Every structure is written in C-alpha cells, then in structure tokens.
Amino acid sequence: MDMLLPFLDISGPDGQHFQVELEKDAVTIGRFDQFNDIALSPDPQQLITRKVHCTLEHDLYGWWVADNGSVNRTFVRRGDDIQIVQGRTLLNEGESIRILGRLTETGEPLYWELTFSDPLGTRPSGPPRQVAYLEYDWIEARLYRVEGSRRLEIHEIRPQEHKLIRYMEQRNRANGNVAVMCSYEELLAAVWGEEAYHTEGDINHLIWELRKKLEPDPKAPRFLETVRGLGYRLVTSPRGKEEA
C-alpha cells in the first residue's frame, strides 16, 4: 500500500519491524506507549527514556528530530555516517534515527532504526528563516522575546515564574539550546520544592499566567508549548540555528 503521508520504517534490535505514518506535526518517541506517539518496546534494559526520548517536529522547511535530553542520546544515520543529534537536526529522505535498544552480553550495542521517508513532501525554496524565541539573562534575571532584530523585555515576572523559566532554560541549555519537554513532576519540584500539596493544576495556572505575558496570542502559544498529558517546553533559542 502506498504511503501518502510521510512515514517511518522502523526496525528493532530483536527483529521487530513496522511502519508508522506521521499524521501530526509533532510526534513523540519513547519507551512507553501511554506517554508517546511511537513506543519502542520491549526495553528490558531500560535504555530508552520512558517519557519522550526524542521528538519529530514538522515546519515549513521539513522534518526535524530533536533529542529530549536523553541519557543514551539520539543518533542520525546519513549513509555510512552516524552523528549524535546535538539538540535538533533536519532529516532528509532515507535518513534514519537510531536509538540504543539493547546491549548484548558482550556489550555490543543494538539499535532501533527509524528510517524517514516523505516522497510526496513539498520541498522548501530557500533556507530556514529566523524565528522568534525567548532569551533569559541569568545574571540580571531578565526575560526577553527576540524577533529578528527586535529584543523586547518581558516585565512583571513573578518569583515562581522566574523559577519555572530558569529551570526550563537550564534544561534547554544542557540539550544544545533546543527545547526539552519538562514533566509536571520536574516543574513542581523546580517551583515549589518539597511542598507536596501543589498539583498539576498549579503548574497549568502558572503556565497560563506566563503565556499572557509572553505570547502574542496565549491560546496559540509559540514559546511555552504544551506536550499533551506530559508537561511543557520552553522555546529559548532559534530552532534549526545549527542547520541554517
């Protein structure tokens, strides 16, 4: 059957094989199916991140793979060349995402290989354009929205909002300045520490208040993105900057 949508042809370390059409513009990949659009299982050695090992993201210029700060990293195979995904990498036809799936008794690594194909995709006519992003000044504790040559400071950020922004920006910086999905559990600990009476609802309220300050349209967020059912991502650098 011909695939009309872009798809992944997936092979596992123990002979698994299946295909997945990419029906959404953001697709999560990880160990457990309850947390991810594509689940790579079984994973008895727990080598794959259970909540979002990496994501596939589509924009005007194609499909990108973004590592989500995983312990065992995400790789891309281009022919005979294998590269570590440093933050976010553009995928081309026939290239493969590689994720460590198993170590043999002798320590040999075996991988999941997810080969990308989009034969009917629209090709971009030029290089990626610069996009809007957030910038956080740790020394002065100031937050800015950057759009092209414009740099606008965001005022009236409350202490709890600063804690959330600082934590998410730090996670991004450790991931090559590419947005990392931060779970509700992480954000609750970052903002309130060991105060156990706070809930996901408190995080949702804090995010909504921040969006009203950051976003041109809080109902269509560009900077504080929802990862449905899991948490949020903060866009704090130009996406695809390394590929431009």
Score class of each variant (00 low, 15 high):
Asp59Gln: 05
Asp9Gln: 13
Glu209Lys: 10
Ile154Cys: 03
Asp14Pro: 05
Arg73Met: 15
Thr74Tyr: 02
Pro218Phe: 03
Arg228Met: 09
Leu22Trp: 05
Phe116Asn: 11
Gly107Asn: 00
Trp64Met: 12
Leu5Asp: 05
Val65Pro: 09
Leu187Asp: 06
Pro221Trp: 04
Pro218Met: 02
His205Ile: 15
Leu4Trp: 03
Glu169Trp: 03
Ile139Phe: 01
Phe223Thr: 12
Gln160Cys: 11
Arg98Tyr: 04
Gly121Arg: 06
Ser149Cys: 10
Pro221Ala: 02
Asn36Leu: 11
Leu224Phe: 04
Arg145Ala: 02
Ala141Tyr: 01
Glu200Gln: 15
Val146Asn: 11
Met168His: 01
His17Lys: 11
Arg98Gly: 08
Pro159Lys: 05
Pro128Ser: 02
Tyr61Pro: 15
Gln130Tyr: 03
Asn72Thr: 05
Ala174Phe: 01
Asp9Phe: 02
Glu161Ala: 06
Ala66Pro: 07
Trp63Tyr: 02
Arg129Met: 11
Arg158Ile: 05
Thr55Ile: 12
Glu140Cys: 07
Glu108Val: 09
Ala179Thr: 00
Ala196Trp: 04
Pro119Glu: 13
His205Asn: 15
Pro42Gly: 03
Asn177Leu: 13
Tyr232Trp: 12
Lys241Pro: 08
Val27Cys: 10
Met181Ala: 14
Cys54Glu: 12
Ala220Ile: 14
Gly240Glu: 04
Gly126Asn: 14
Leu40Tyr: 02
Glu147Leu: 14
Leu114Asn: 13
Ile154Ser: 05
Lys213His: 00
Thr106Cys: 05
Ser237Asp: 15
Ala220Leu: 14
Arg222Gly: 09
Pro109Lys: 00
Glu108Pro: 05
Thr236Gly: 07
Leu188Ala: 01
Ala179Lys: 03
Glu95Cys: 03
Gly87Asp: 14
Val27Ser: 09
Asn36Cys: 12
Thr122His: 07
Arg123Pro: 01
Pro13Cys: 08
Glu57Met: 00
Asp43Thr: 01
Ala179Tyr: 00
Thr55Leu: 15
Asp81Ala: 06
Lys163Asp: 15
Arg228Thr: 06
Ile29Pro: 11
Asn172Cys: 07
His58Gln: 09
Ala220Ser: 14
Glu108Ser: 05
Glu135Tyr: 02
Gln45Ala: 10
Asp80Gly: 04
Gln34Glu: 15
Ser125Gln: 15
Leu56Thr: 00
Arg88Phe: 00
Leu164Val: 06
Trp63His: 03
Gly231Tyr: 02
Glu135Arg: 04
Asn72Met: 13
Thr104Asn: 11
Ile99Asp: 07
Lys219Phe: 08
Pro238Trp: 01
Thr28Leu: 13
Gly87Ala: 04
Leu187Ser: 04
Leu110Asp: 09
Leu47Glu: 09
Gln83Asp: 12
Glu185Lys: 05
His58Ser: 10
Gln170Phe: 01
Asp59Glu: 12
Val65Lys: 05
His162Asp: 15
Pro128Ile: 03
Lys51Arg: 08
Asp67Thr: 02
Arg77Tyr: 01
Leu103Gln: 11
Arg171His: 04
Ala244Ser: 10
Gln46Phe: 11
Gly229Gln: 08
